[in-house]
Design a protein around this nucleic acid. Structure first.
Lengths: 231, 231
DNA sequence: CAGTGGTCTAGACCACGGG
DNA sequence: CCGTGGTCTAGACCACTGG
């Protein structure tokens, strides 16, 4: 018999019933106690399995109302944001990094407002290029709120990218990502070694520590970049 | 006292220790039994809390080796793929839909290979436009493997988009997403009402049922589209 | 081998919220 | 009210793997 007890088995069995429409979309499924009895395991085991399916968006659970199969499952991709260096190396290429400019200046209004800073804080402006096998991969244009991470001012950004320094030293908490397609402006095109107005992917990111905004950054990817996700 | 027992509290306390570097990056943290004793709860409760943190990428757990704080936490965004209609309506706009063309034809080689189909299956080619407040929002170019979802041939795609029909009727299982920036070709630009060669975001998606490939689709978003994620 | 996390269990109590 | 999921507990056994 293929009867393995274990929450994974319960998970798989429930998934099978959902996919094969044995439990129809929108329908109520048996409660945990009944399922536990049917499948020969403890209720906690069923709970664990069904909780995973609910996390994945396939089930909707409510006290007293019971558990239903989601009518139109909202697919969720889990998308991990790697270090740029890892992103390059995971494609089998060699990653290098070049600092273009590093200045201390008040943060421009645009970035300030996005980060929710009220006064023009002292900040660090970093421009850098990440290369894959020596070819430009992504151009980084970053403003960092130095009040949130004063130690960054002492960091040697010619050897470690601000990207990595922040990941390693800043207690980040939440943030936003915005991918968009845009035409490369002349300066960016120059850095990336492509023609102006080439269609490129940009990523604008903000990150916040639990207590203060940390950084705004725009990454401009070289033409041909693809953002890949599996479901 | 703020002493709430509960896995959420354990989770928050552990998170605090990570963020405040009480548990340094890369360092070993106490084992579950000790933590349970310290925090006055059962080991299973600690396990639940630490498992969540490990799922979030903040901890790395290995039997016998114990639990470590991740050195460079890989941030993970959870990205939910809405129906196009929901995506439009969630921005407060009115969604409409227009079928441009619907034909039965053998699937082209390019799509066939991507989906892993060996013979040129009978397939449905759908071109459609999704509009937001009457303005083009995204152009959809889709090939569906009719062998996997024969019922689609009878569906009235002038009233319901293939997108929605498939979500509702096809038992999808896994798939891939590829976002890229590209220059609008003349035909696409015509559909979207923008100039040719405008930089636009495209999404190429494949979906598979547990048993067979279902569909390949390219969505071409109107200029200005942003893919937004929160962390 | 032995320490650690992974999981199961049976039972219990609680919180939510539908009817 | 009271059924249902959410969680906690104490104890147990197991699986993996470092030393």
């Amino acid at each position: 018999m293929g009867k393995q007890t274990g929450w994974q088995s319960v998970h798989d069995e429930a998934l099978r019933r959902i996919q094969q429409r044995i439990w129809a979309p929108g329908a109520l499924i048996p409660n945990e106690e009944d399922l536990a009895a049917e499948l020969g395991c403890a209720r906690a085991t069923v709970n664990r399995a069904l909780r995973e399916l609910a996390d994945a968006g396939l089930l909707e659970r409510r006290r007293k109302a019971g558990t239903r199969v989601t009518e139109t499952p909202e697919r969720r991709a889990r998308f991990s944001i790697p270090l740029i260096r890892d992103e390059i190396e995971s494609r089998g290429a060699t990653a290098t990094y070049a600092l273009i400019a590093r200045t201390i200046a008040p943060m421009p209004d645009a970035q300030r407002h996005i980060l929710g800073l009220t006064s023009p804080e002292k900040s660090l402006h970093v421009q850098a290029l990440h290369l894959s096998n020596g070819a430009p991969f992504v151009y980084e244009n970053r403003w960092v709120n130095l009040a949130a991470v004063p130690a960054l001012e002492q960091a040697d950004l010619t050897t470690i990218s601000a990207n990595e320094w922040l990941l390693r030293h800043a207690p980040l908490d939440r943030g936003t990502f915005d991918y968009a397609a845009s035409a490369a402006d002349p300066a960016t095109a120059g850095h990336l070694g492509c023609a102006p107005n080439t269609a490129i992917m940009t990523l604008e990111r903000t990150t916040h520590s639990p207590t203060a905004p940390i950084t705004w950054v725009r990454l401009s990817y070289a033409p041909g970049y693809r953002l890949h996700m599996d479901i």
